[in-house]
Write a protein that binds this DNA or RNA. Structure first.
Lengths: 237, 237
DNA sequence: CGAGCGATTGAAAAGACTCAACCACCGTGG
DNA sequence: CCACGGTGGTTGAGTCTTTTCAATCGCTCG
């Protein structure tokens, strides 16, 4: 099911500049490379399950991953999107508790898994790593609080516009078509980001199409009018 | 407006066991006491404002404080409730950025303010403090994610039941009346916790009263049937 | 006493959800 | 090859929840 494949080298990893591991020293990087394992996950495969302790620190090298929680009725609420260089499962690992969230690949993804021991050794040896983790947690908490306010107070229409801009921001656009989002989501996943029912999402997408804000073609979404979409989404910057 | 008053001593503070400062050493505690300032805030007074850098690390000694964000239309969404021993403003202080949230006293509160310098000195000198902060951030992020899913997927009725139980859990009950919540909130504040309109909150409270789940008397709320309320709120533990 | 604020209630409207049907596409197996 | 079934997407209709607007009420404070 999950195959170990080509193993990227942390020392030369281009995504490390964005990572919490960005200022780990040479020596530790070697230890990291020698103890880590790397896997490819196919689209849809689950990397981490809510309620289960993660087996290590997952580091996304290539691909796109959704972080989500499952509600009472089994509906998924996506709480975060991970991209190259992002770590997954670090919270549960640090606290020694079951993971509060699930993670699954949105497309084929290459993920490095750093053993718990290595991670904790790193944490002890590298003084700034804990500060990097604090920064990451702070940023994620900030985003989460923002999301709370928006879900509580903004209508679906605004939240969808916001979500589309987030997707562009996070995963960028296709090579050769700067208006087409590079990520392909099912309607259900998109609804899971916005926090609404599938049907409501579909209708609101249809509205946006009528208003020439976007166009869709299967799962490919093009943003036709960025500034007007930003206005709909109440985006300030 | 804000008066400096009696100054509690960290070394003997009974709330320190719950605090991120719980394992700061004797010497550092003395430095803390000698540099900190303490203020009393009256009910409603703002301790910290969204968008403004905090002037220090606030440590709630006595009282009750709401942490909230203000939405587009000016409506407040309460994202967290602080009680004795909780710290406020630590995120913005650590990151050196404006506060992402506001904080205001729900009742007269005694708050110690630790200067930024002292806090960072503490952080450098005390190895475990950063881990305490990571624990705190993790817990708060977990709560925030939980809240996201609930606001997105649960009806007001369930969220209100949950909120009432949270209030009991957080602030406890009155001396001599273990069913009466010790915290007194306006309807607007309660609505701000649940994430709904005031009128909807009032109606749902009225429903609960009819069902003999609670009783209200001005702002005093009594929980009459804890287990049934927990059932309404979908609480598992 | 009157102004003003917070709480409550009613009525109407809007927003979002659910249910159901239908379509389009795709791959499979007869 | 084509019929078939399954999945994901779309649309319509009706309903339910929640919000909004408006009016009223009670209380407190100057």
């Amino acid at each position: 099911m999950i195959h170990e494949r080509r193993k990227p080298i942390c020392a030369t990893c281009q995504h490390r500049v964005r990572s919490i591991l960005r200022d780990v020293d040479e020596y530790a990087l070697q230890h990291l490379d020698s103890t880590k394992a790397c896997y490819t996950y196919k689209k849809g495969q689950v990397i981490l399950s809510e309620g289960i302790p993660p087996s290590g620190l997952y580091c996304l090298h290539t691909g796109k991953v959704k972080i989500y929680k499952t509600g009472d009725e089994g509906r998924e609420k996506i709480v975060r999107l991970a991209r190259n260089g992002d770590v997954i499962g670090y919270r549960a690992l640090l606290m020694g508790v079951p993971s509060p969230v699930s993670a699954a690949a949105l497309e084929e993804s290459l993920v490095c898994c750093i053993p718990q021991d290595t991670f904790f050794k790193l944490l002890r040896a590298n003084g700034s790593l804990s500060m990097r983790i604090i920064e990451l947690l702070s940023a994620e908490l900030g985003n989460a609080e923002e999301q709370i306010v928006h879900i509580a107070q903004r209508p679906v229409r605004e939240r969808l516009a916001e979500a589309l801009l987030l997707l562009k921001e996070t995963y960028g656009t296709e090579d050769g078509d700067s208006s087409a989002l590079s990520v392909r989501l099912s309607r259900e996943e998109l609804a899971g980001i916005v926090g609404t029912a599938i049907e409501t999402l579909v209708r609101t997408l249809a509205d946006f199409k009528k208003e020439r804000l976007i166009s869709t073609e299967k799962r490919k979404i093009r943003i036709l009018d960025l500034s007007r979409l930003a206005k709909v989404g109440n985006i300030q910057d």
